[in-house]
Design a binder for these strands. Structure first.
Lengths: 227, 227
DNA sequence: ACCTGAACACCGTTCAAGT
DNA sequence: ACCTGAACACCGTTCAAGT
């Protein structure tokens, strides 16, 4: 029923995987992961919804392509932030910090993809980079892989969780965030003494600080292992 | 169209929050988080789907109630596994190990709820327990809260991610899991030398071992901070 | 007091038909 | 070669009507 000219939202003359991934990323950034539906994408691109199936086998394939785009974003920025000559600690910090930035820049995309192992090209580059950073620590091959997977999985899990929190519907997100002052702060001192003793710190601490603290603790833990 | 007697699947004479939460947990364990729909729940309980709205304001409230049930499961088992007199390291290990067990026992429930802060009763007990464990380390109040949140968020994020992986549709899960042998193992040695050098270890390592290694690294990192 | 069932505004995906 | 549009089997939620 909507009459869209062939240049609506700047779409190319014909659809392509790249156009669709771009529109999907845009849509998810503007309106959250829930909004990524085949029908919305059709409206967005000015084509019938089912045209999508000419370019992707199913919605899951699109989600993985969107995820790989975010992985490239992280990989590029992390490489630029810490060159191959930097100490391993700084190279790990660069990757993990960039991952956190991605969870603020593309929260919905991360929420949709962080738990997936795709084997797509940018994921493979990321694996190679992390192994290259950890290898020179002089651990056994098994330990080397454990350390790489620990940093990789911790980054995915923590940034993915943040992406999910950032993607909650505003009303629900506000309700969750206010639990500390709304529920915890009014608990009886008798039953929850430790909570009450740390009330101010529990309310003041923010997720970015916790993440940074976790990164430093993991690095310190590996330093202790290497020593 | 389905004729269900009033005792189908043992439902009580009238619906209650407890009956509904029990049926939801059952359903999610049997058929995954995708299967938790208001309509399926109605069929499961032998009532019209919309009867649900007499007992919960919306589906989100049910999801949080299901999550709190899992938190109680973890809290009870973690307390039993390491008494208050055990060293703080063992008490943290007990909580994190039990969390991992929950992600295998209730993967779908964890996938649905791990990123939520609810302020519900069992979550509050868990917060009190963790603070009580970390408090005696003699850190500043701010550091105490950072260490507690680090352990808490890492447990939620990593077990939640595992719950999501365990809950993928079998065909997709198999495809993701086989990426290491299917994609990574056949990469050109020239472009991905570090990956190729660790191929055997990358295929052999399992998620439980990575999680355990992460737990030990976090504990070691905190020991180094305290010292 | 609680449950039913029609209805609304959505989903992902298939497939015959068009250009 | 690619797109359209009807159709199928679903969603969460509301609300008037029943008992």
């Amino acid at each position: 029923v909507a009459v869209a000219s062939s240049t609506t939202r700047g779409r190319a003359r014909t659809l392509s995987r790249e156009t669709i991934v771009g529109a999907a990323l845009d849509l998810v950034r503007r309106e959250g992961p829930q909004s990524l539906t085949v029908r919305r994408l059709g409206t967005e691109l000015g084509v019938d919804a089912t045209a999508f199936y000419r370019h992707f086998p199913d919605k899951d394939a699109l989600v993985l392509a969107v995820g790989d785009h975010v992985t490239r974003w992280v990989h590029e920025r992390a490489q630029a932030a810490a060159p191959a000559t930097a100490p391993w600690q700084d190279r790990i910090r660069a990757i993990m910090r960039t991952g956190w930035e991605a969870s603020l820049e593309f929260p919905g995309a991360l929420a949709l993809t962080f738990s997936r192992t795709t084997g797509e090209i940018e994921e493979r580059h990321m694996v190679e980079l992390l192994l290259e950073i950890v290898e020179p620590l002089g651990l056994t091959p098994t330990q080397t892989v454990l350390v790489y997977r620990m940093f990789g999985d911790a980054t995915l899990a923590l940034t993915g969780m943040n992406g999910m929190v950032q993607s909650l519907e505003p009303a629900i997100r506000e309700k969750d965030a206010s639990a500390w002052s709304r529920v915890y702060a009014v608990q009886p001192h008798q039953e929850f003494p430790a909570t009450r003793r740390h009330m101010r710190e529990l309310i003041d601490v923010d997720d970015a600080a916790i993440y940074e603290f976790t990164v430093e603790t993991l690095i310190r833990g590996v330093e202790a292992l290497v020593a």
